[in-house]
């Protein structure tokens, strides 16, 4: 049961962590539309206007040929080899581009569809290439990873919940069989159903509460130990701060999971073995 509660809490934590990761990746993930050298700035700005109208698009940034060259020099001014090659090529080899950013990783397809189909042919001819296709696998993998991890977490907690219910169920079953004689006597002297069943339900709930306390302790220790290490890996993500900040939510999640599991398993055992 402790395992299940731990996993349920981890799912809660995972949701938050993946949110941070996804937003970080999203900041970086965009698609760039490069235009042919012949394309006029006026046309490109028109296309920018068109793209901004798509509901999925967050913003569109125009990078002119000159700006691209400037950025490149700025970034690589210390790299002799690259600077040398740039001189070798001569002039400005960069293309004007529009950097399109969508709200979600899955929405880039809509942008590509717009460029391929909806955009007027005159404008389509100005486009040299769209680098979405190079980035597509990366974007899709990130997307699959985050939703996949969530799915694995949920199915694992369902499996563990079933295991926890079975274990608690067996404990209560043994308790019922152990007290068979006493239960029989209770029945004969006219004990009400809830007088007989109540203690077993409470027993299930108490085992849930004990599991909660154990898993709370384990979870706190894990967060405390791993907090600095995870913060080192992903800046801005401190699990210990997250734990203390969401302490009551976590306790609530753990307690409700624990008590629910305990109560469910004991009520199944009572139904099966306690014929009143």
């Amino acid at each position: 049961m402790t395992m299940t509660i731990l996993l349920a809490t981890s799912l809660f934590l995972f949701k938050d962590i993946s949110q941070i990761l996804i937003s970080a990746i999203r900041e970086k993930a965009d698609i760039s539309v490069y235009f042919k050298t012949a394309a006029q700035e006026e046309d490109i700005l028109n296309i920018q206007g068109e793209l901004s109208k798509i509901p999925e698009v967050k913003d569109v940034e125009y990078v002119s040929k000159e700006k691209a060259l400037e950025d490149f020099i700025q970034r690589h001014k210390d790299n002799q080899v690259l600077m040398g090659s740039l001189e070798e090529v001569g002039g400005n080899p960069f293309l004007a581009a529009l950097n399109v950013r969508a709200f979600e990783a899955s929405q880039y397809q809509a942008v590509v569809n717009f460029l391929d189909a909806t955009l007027e042919p005159v404008y389509q001819n100005l486009i040299e290439k769209v680098d979405y296709y190079q980035r597509k696998p990366v974007i899709e993998r990130i997307f699959a990873l985050t939703s996949g991890a969530g799915k694995v977490g949920i199915s694992l907690s369902i499996v563990l919940a079933i295991v926890a219910i079975l274990v608690a169920f067996n404990t209560i079953r043994l308790a019922i069989l152990n007290q068979a004689e006493e239960i029989k006597i209770q029945r004969l002297v006219g004990a009400s159903n809830w007088f007989i069943r109540g203690p077993f339900l409470v027993q299930g709930a108490i085992s849930g509460i004990i599991s909660t306390l154990i898993s709370l302790l384990i979870f706190a220790l894990i967060c405390w130990f791993l907090g600095p290490k995870i913060e080192f890996l992903f800046s801005g993500l401190n699990v210990w701060k997250f734990f203390t900040g969401n302490f009551f939510t976590i306790i609530l999640i753990q307690l409700s999971t624990g008590i629910l599991l305990g109560a469910i398993s004991s009520s199944i055992a009572i139904r099966k073995y306690l014929k009143v």
Binding site: I185, G190, N193
Partner: peptide, 21 residues
């Protein structure tokens, strides 16, 4: 079934094997 305890409370039972706790 919920009313059964009330009926049983009207009866006192004594057994050959006592059935004491």
């Amino acid at each position: 079934p919920g009313k059964l305890p009330a009926v049983r409370r009207r009866i006192g039972a004594v057994f050959q094997d006592y059935k004491l706790l």
